[in-house]
Amino acid sequence: MKKILALTALSAFAVSSHAQSSLLLYGILDEALTYTNNTGTTNANGSVTPAGSKFAVDSLSGMYGSRWGLRGDEDLGGGLHTIFTLESGISLPNGGQGQGGLMWGRQIYVGMKSANFGQVTLGRQYDSVYNFTMLLDSGSLTSNGASMHAGDLDNAAINLRQNNSIRYLSPNIKGLTFGGGLAVGGVAGDVTNGLQYNFGAQYDTGVGLKVGAAYEFFKNPIGSSAGTGWFTSNGSGTLLSHALDAGYTSAHNYQIGMVAAQYTKGQWTFAGSWSNAQFGKMTAFDGKTVTFNTFDLGFQYMWTPFFSTAVGWNYQTSTGVTRPDGTKVGNQHSNQFYGRASYNLSKRTALYSAVGYQDSRGVNSLGGRAVADIDNIVDSSTGKQVVFRLGITHFF
């Protein structure tokens, strides 16, 4: 018995000495005083009851979004690694958690990685828009709620993640990276219910230009309970709670296509993107589809290694959809202008200010007058909305 225990201990020591492990605790605190004018409460008929201007302290809609997490890596030898990440969104004003109160709402996954073959991970994860296009669009240069697309219909503000997902990301092959994911619905008796798949690619030319593309499809995007669909993938509620898209909750599928490009030369960076989002097979509209197209352009200038400014514009349009009674809704468009200035006090701490202005016109998804909706912060009581942030970020 003693010989068996000794051999077991020796083999355990041999394994531990062979495997190199690392564990990283990291986080970002991004807190700002936020002013939003013309806020309101959206009614079932599409009208908005005015609620007045609003001042708030916010840590979830900033340049980075406050978070903390743990990242681990175990070297198994032969170029193979076990990896994992646990990351939680945090709300500094009240000490709560982001993403609807989920403990690990930003991401949580475990998997294997190889320098030659890429990585495969399983869990709650980011999508292909994040991996291949979001970091190239104009909004990435200002990176805060004041600059995000109306309703975040293309998920370029990462309001949503994919639950129950299996994801592959390739290694960098002479500037090219690609990958995709599959999320299973977990519904007994119907293996396609809640099915999600996505894929994309990005190419870095090595001379300042990067281009990317992504496609995503979601079947039954509105789950019966929190965490079971795409628009209900957070801990509570649904993202489709604003006048822009609240009328489209009967959609049986949803898809996103996005392309983006970014070019850096010296102190200048230019960026732009186009995205197409579709709510398909809506039972409330006799199976019809409504389509949104969003375009953005912007640039950043680095005045010094510590101080930068950025400005941008995005335009969103939808031709709408016709109800069974013949009335048309959702035929609206919006123009949005935004800017950001930031100053790095150190490698870890920065001060920033950001402003966004949106002008929306037409008819919203519920049949009322179109109202402004920057990101998904709050519906305006009119077609216009201003969001201003004055904040501080700290990395640890």
Rank of each mutant, 00 (worst) to 15 (best):
M1S: 07
K3I: 10
L5D: 07
L7Q: 01
S11I: 01
S17N: 03
Q20I: 15
A32W: 04
T34K: 00
N38C: 13
T39W: 05
T42C: 10
V48P: 02
V48E: 05
D58F: 15
Y64Q: 12
S66N: 04
G72S: 08
G77H: 08
G79I: 14
L92I: 13
G96W: 00
R106C: 11
G111C: 10
K113E: 10
V120S: 00
G123H: 04
V129I: 15
L135R: 11
D154C: 06
N155D: 15
L160F: 14
L160V: 04
Q162N: 15
S165V: 06
F178C: 09
V187G: 01
T192V: 11
N193E: 14
G200W: 02
Q202A: 11
A213W: 11
A214C: 13
F218C: 09
N220C: 06
T228W: 01
G229E: 11
S233N: 07
T238E: 06
S241V: 14
S241I: 14
Y254G: 00
A260P: 03
Y263W: 14
T264G: 03
A271S: 09
S273Y: 09
F295H: 07
G298Q: 01
W303Y: 13
F307T: 12
F307E: 07
S308V: 04
A310N: 01
G312W: 01
W313F: 01
Q316I: 02
D325W: 02
G330V: 10
Y338V: 09
R340P: 08
K347Y: 06
A350Q: 08
D375M: 01
I377Y: 04
V386M: 06
R389D: 15
